[in-house]
């Protein structure tokens, strides 16, 4: 066993795996979540995100590999570190017959490190932070999904935390609520809290994350800062012309395979091949009449789909 802790990372895993029977739900992942980052953990449904989170929090046993959470090894030192970690795992949960406030009181009473004297105040603050002060005395079975989600986030904020793990935090929220969560995450991050946020919707978290990992079928297929992941070697060319055959031949002479769809010619161009203006000049010199010429980097979303595959099949 490697007992190195990795205090510079909020979450550090090596070869982390989870087997269910013969299937690897999580297959040897190496997560590197730097302290202070807003880390987006992306992947389609069933890619192993929640299972990973369960292992990080000591809820599920680790089949292979190691986890270091805020420099503590998991599961051996999990109880010492969990008070510094707030989490929302696979949706919120609450006692339906208790009020929102009493639910938080109950969960806070469960944490031995939580000071009972400040419990009332801390619960008040957490409720206010997610906008549930008005609804705190309503029974949770009268809450909407969005209110339950807010309650779940309030629970994650009961104590001063160093790390927040938020699994699909905007699930069930309306656009207004989604924006509030995003603002809350930004605000918490500005207080120095590391935020690990999982989602299957890139668009929801793209704008707030500093780092991303993309998971597909139990493996991490890409990880790094948002800039690193946006940098690309391949541009896509889209050319509108009535001299289709000539354009394809010209591109072919440059070693580029192009496809034609009516007047639109598409091709993938390696970024180090030549500058856009040089390419357009070459085409014009070859006698191709250009009506429109676009050379674009793929969006992060296109990269996401490239890496994880499209469609509704879930592993």
């Amino acid at each position: 066993m490697d007992h190195l802790s990795h205090p510079e990372y909020a979450i550090f895993t090596s070869g982390l795996s989870k087997r269910f029977g013969s299937r690897n739900a999580v297959d040897g992942i190496d997560l590197r979540v730097p302290r202070g980052s807003i880390f987006g953990f992306l992947g389609p449904n069933g890619s192993g995100k929640t299972t990973t989170i369960r292992m990080l929090l000591g809820l599920a046993n680790i089949s292979a590999g190691q986890v270091s959470l805020l420099g503590h090894s998991v599961p051996e030192q999990i109880e010492g570190v969990l008070p510094k970690v707030g989490a929302l795992v696979e949706g919120p949960a609450a006692y339906p017959y208790l009020s929102g406030r009493d639910n938080l009181m109950r969960l806070d009473a469960s944490d031995r490190s939580a000071d009972p004297k400040s419990r009332d105040t801390r619960v008040d603050v957490a409720l206010a932070r997610v906008g549930l002060t008005q609804a705190q005395d309503k029974k949770v079975n009268a809450y909407s999904l969005g209110m339950k989600q807010r309650l779940g986030i309030a629970n994650a904020l009961l104590q001063p935390r160093e790390l927040l793990i938020l699994d699909e935090p905007t699930n069930g929220l309306d656009p207004q609520g989604t924006r509030e969560v995003r603002n809350l995450v930004r605000q918490l991050a500005s207080e120095g809290i590391t935020i690990f946020i999982s989602s299957h919707l890139l668009a929801e978290i793209e704008q707030i994350c500093t780092h991303l990992a993309i998971m597909s079928q139990g493996k991490i297929v890409a990880q790094g800062t948002v800039e690193e992941l946006s940098a690309t070697e391949i541009f896509s060319l889209s050319l509108v012309t009535s001299d289709g055959a000539l354009a394809i031949a010209t591109l072919k002479a440059l070693g580029i395979e192009a496809t034609q769809d009516g007047k639109i010619i598409s091709a993938a161009i390696p970024s180090d091949l030549m500058k856009p203006e040089e390419l357009s000049k070459l085409l014009v010199e070859a006698g191709v009449g250009i009506q429109a010429f676009t050379l674009s980097a793929p969006t992060l979303e296109e990269r996401f789909v490239q890496l994880t595959g499209e469609g509704f099949q879930v592993a």
Binding site: L57, G58, G91, P92, A93, Y95, D111
Partner: peptide, 14 residues
Amino acid sequence: SIGILRYLLIAPVN
């Protein structure tokens, strides 16, 4: 069954 068990355990409760 109501899912609160995971939140008790990560509160954490031994």
